[in-house]
Amino acid sequence: MEWLLEHLDRLLLYVFGAGALVSALLMLVLRQPMRVALALISAMVFLGGIYGLLGVHFIAAFQVLIYVGAIMVFMVYVIMMLDPRDPSCAERFSVLVLPAVVAFVLLVGVLGYVVWAGAPALAGGAYGSVYELRQFAASFLKEYWLHFELTSVLLVVAVVAAVAVIQVHRGRHD
């Protein structure tokens, strides 16, 4: 029991990781888009848990708020707009399944090899205080203010583009 308490963090890490991995794999095989969306949501929640375990609580919060709360809700909403009995997508997989799986294995193999064999920089690390929200916010506004502003520009552009896309659609049909 003591052992369990001592290693609770690590145990939870593995559990969350396995959960994320399984959710991701489910995304590949589930037929209904709504189920795929739910699998993705669960993967994201598991990842949020991992972030929390790593001590970056605000990123965990954003993960849940932005990804699950905004993006995925949007996605689910769209899926519900479409006809769930759409027969057009009877085929689950494209014709490229076999070559794609081969390439996938190669990719995972190479990257996994690098992660496990190389990379001396990954040997352990200090859990510093860098993850305090205050420091994060300060460095954001002092050092990375330009990027911050650029993302706001990006968002404006995205809004304009989304409006434009809808306008094009309206103009053609009305």
Binding site: S94, L96, P99, A100, A103, F104, L106, L107, V110
Partner: peptide, 20 residues
């Protein structure tokens, strides 16, 4: 699109393999 995506995937995999 998926052919293009596959070519990108294969290209990345081959490129990584080569760089390894």
């Amino acid at each position: 699109l998926q052919l293009y995506a596959f070519l990108v995937l294969a290209g990345i995999a081959a490129g990584l393999l080569w760089s390894l």
